[in-house]
Amino acid sequence: MGLFEKLYDEHEKVQVRFIGFTTEETRYDFGIVYTNMFFGKPLIVCMQTGRSALLDPADLDNIEYLQTAFHINETKQAADLVEFFKSELPIIPFQPQYD
Protein backbone atom coordinates (compact mmCIF):
# COMPACT_ATOMS: atom_id res chain seq x y z
CA MET A 1 0.00 0.00 0.00
CA GLY A 2 1.28 3.46 -0.88
CA LEU A 3 1.79 6.37 1.40
CA PHE A 4 -1.55 7.91 0.43
CA GLU A 5 -4.94 6.30 0.09
CA LYS A 6 -7.01 8.37 -2.33
CA LEU A 7 -10.49 9.06 -1.01
CA TYR A 8 -11.85 10.78 -4.10
CA ASP A 9 -10.63 12.31 -7.33
CA GLU A 10 -13.41 14.18 -9.08
CA HIS A 11 -13.22 16.39 -12.15
CA GLU A 12 -16.03 18.82 -12.69
CA LYS A 13 -16.69 21.90 -14.77
CA VAL A 14 -18.02 24.47 -12.35
CA GLN A 15 -19.50 27.94 -12.49
CA VAL A 16 -17.51 30.58 -10.62
CA ARG A 17 -18.75 34.05 -9.86
CA PHE A 18 -16.50 36.87 -8.68
CA ILE A 19 -18.19 39.75 -6.94
CA GLY A 20 -16.89 42.85 -5.20
CA PHE A 21 -19.00 45.22 -3.15
CA THR A 22 -18.80 47.73 -0.35
CA THR A 23 -20.76 48.45 2.78
CA GLU A 24 -20.55 51.62 4.85
CA GLU A 25 -17.38 50.35 6.54
CA THR A 26 -15.79 47.64 4.43
CA ARG A 27 -14.94 46.48 0.93
CA TYR A 28 -15.42 42.79 0.07
CA ASP A 29 -14.21 40.65 -2.82
CA PHE A 30 -15.55 37.10 -3.01
CA GLY A 31 -15.40 34.18 -5.35
CA ILE A 32 -18.43 31.89 -5.29
CA VAL A 33 -17.82 28.39 -6.66
CA TYR A 34 -20.99 26.52 -7.59
CA THR A 35 -20.28 22.80 -7.54
CA ASN A 36 -21.99 19.47 -7.03
CA MET A 37 -19.40 18.57 -4.40
CA PHE A 38 -19.81 19.46 -0.72
CA PHE A 39 -23.46 18.43 -0.56
CA GLY A 40 -24.26 21.07 -3.18
CA LYS A 41 -23.17 23.99 -0.99
CA PRO A 42 -21.33 26.78 -2.81
CA LEU A 43 -17.71 27.36 -1.78
CA ILE A 44 -17.30 31.01 -0.80
CA VAL A 45 -13.73 32.36 -0.96
CA CYS A 46 -12.69 35.76 0.35
CA MET A 47 -10.28 36.98 -2.31
CA GLN A 48 -8.63 39.41 0.14
CA THR A 49 -7.75 36.92 2.89
CA GLY A 50 -8.00 33.53 1.19
CA ARG A 51 -10.39 32.30 3.88
CA SER A 52 -13.22 30.13 2.65
CA ALA A 53 -16.40 28.45 3.81
CA LEU A 54 -19.15 26.26 2.46
CA LEU A 55 -22.38 28.20 2.79
CA ASP A 56 -26.01 27.76 1.97
CA PRO A 57 -28.93 29.93 3.10
CA ALA A 58 -29.50 27.79 6.22
CA ASP A 59 -25.93 28.48 7.38
CA LEU A 60 -26.66 32.20 7.38
CA ASP A 61 -28.89 31.77 10.44
CA ASN A 62 -25.70 31.19 12.45
CA ILE A 63 -23.90 34.54 12.35
CA GLU A 64 -21.16 33.21 14.66
CA TYR A 65 -20.24 30.60 12.04
CA LEU A 66 -19.79 33.34 9.46
CA GLN A 67 -17.69 35.39 11.89
CA THR A 68 -15.49 32.41 12.66
CA ALA A 69 -15.10 31.30 9.04
CA PHE A 70 -14.05 34.72 7.77
CA HIS A 71 -12.40 36.00 11.00
CA ILE A 72 -14.81 38.92 11.38
CA ASN A 73 -14.74 40.62 14.78
CA GLU A 74 -17.55 43.12 14.25
CA THR A 75 -21.11 41.78 14.48
CA LYS A 76 -22.30 44.58 12.16
CA GLN A 77 -19.88 43.47 9.42
CA ALA A 78 -21.04 39.86 9.76
CA ALA A 79 -24.68 40.99 9.66
CA ASP A 80 -23.94 42.92 6.44
CA LEU A 81 -22.46 39.77 4.90
CA VAL A 82 -25.47 37.71 5.98
CA GLU A 83 -27.74 40.23 4.25
CA PHE A 84 -25.66 40.09 1.09
CA PHE A 85 -25.41 36.30 0.95
CA LYS A 86 -29.12 35.86 1.66
CA SER A 87 -29.84 37.62 -1.62
CA GLU A 88 -27.06 35.91 -3.59
CA LEU A 89 -26.86 32.26 -2.51
CA PRO A 90 -29.22 29.87 -4.27
CA ILE A 91 -31.66 27.78 -2.30
CA ILE A 92 -30.68 24.26 -3.24
CA PRO A 93 -31.98 20.95 -1.97
CA PHE A 94 -29.63 18.75 0.06
CA GLN A 95 -27.59 16.51 -2.22
CA PRO A 96 -26.19 13.24 -0.86
CA GLN A 97 -22.39 13.24 -1.16
CA TYR A 98 -21.74 9.52 -1.05
CA ASP A 99 -24.08 7.31 -3.04
Results as ranks from 00 to 15, higher is better:
residue 49 T to K: 09
residue 74 E to T: 04
residue 13 K to S: 00
residue 35 T to I: 03
residue 54 L to M: 06
residue 85 F to N: 07
residue 50 G to T: 15
residue 29 D to H: 03
residue 39 F to R: 13
residue 67 Q to Y: 06
residue 88 E to R: 02
residue 49 T to Y: 05
residue 82 V to A: 03
residue 64 E to P: 02
residue 66 L to I: 15
residue 40 G to L: 07
residue 46 C to M: 08
residue 14 V to H: 01
residue 47 M to N: 15
residue 91 I to M: 02
residue 49 T to M: 15
residue 12 E to H: 01
residue 81 L to D: 02
residue 88 E to P: 00
residue 74 E to N: 07
residue 74 E to C: 06
residue 76 K to W: 06
residue 34 Y to I: 02
residue 77 Q to E: 07
residue 61 D to M: 00
residue 60 L to K: 03
residue 74 E to W: 05
residue 43 L to S: 09
residue 94 F to Q: 08
residue 67 Q to D: 02
residue 95 Q to M: 09
residue 28 Y to V: 01
residue 8 Y to D: 12
residue 79 A to M: 07
residue 96 P to T: 08
residue 48 Q to P: 01
residue 18 F to C: 10
residue 37 M to W: 06
residue 90 P to D: 10
residue 97 Q to F: 10
residue 79 A to R: 07
residue 41 K to V: 03
residue 43 L to G: 05
residue 84 F to E: 08
residue 21 F to E: 13
residue 26 T to F: 01
residue 37 M to I: 01
residue 70 F to C: 03
residue 25 E to P: 04
residue 2 G to S: 12
residue 25 E to Y: 11
residue 56 D to E: 12
residue 56 D to P: 00
residue 77 Q to K: 09
residue 92 I to G: 04
residue 19 I to Q: 14
residue 76 K to T: 08
residue 12 E to A: 07
residue 53 A to G: 14
residue 39 F to G: 09
residue 18 F to D: 14
residue 62 N to I: 00
residue 23 T to F: 11
residue 21 F to S: 15
residue 89 L to G: 05
residue 26 T to C: 11
residue 45 V to T: 04
residue 84 F to C: 05
residue 70 F to P: 03
residue 3 L to N: 07
residue 52 S to T: 12
residue 80 D to R: 08
residue 83 E to T: 11
residue 82 V to M: 08
residue 27 R to L: 10
residue 42 P to K: 04
residue 3 L to A: 04
residue 99 D to M: 10
residue 66 L to V: 15
residue 73 N to W: 03
residue 74 E to M: 04
residue 15 Q to T: 11
residue 47 M to P: 01
residue 87 S to C: 12
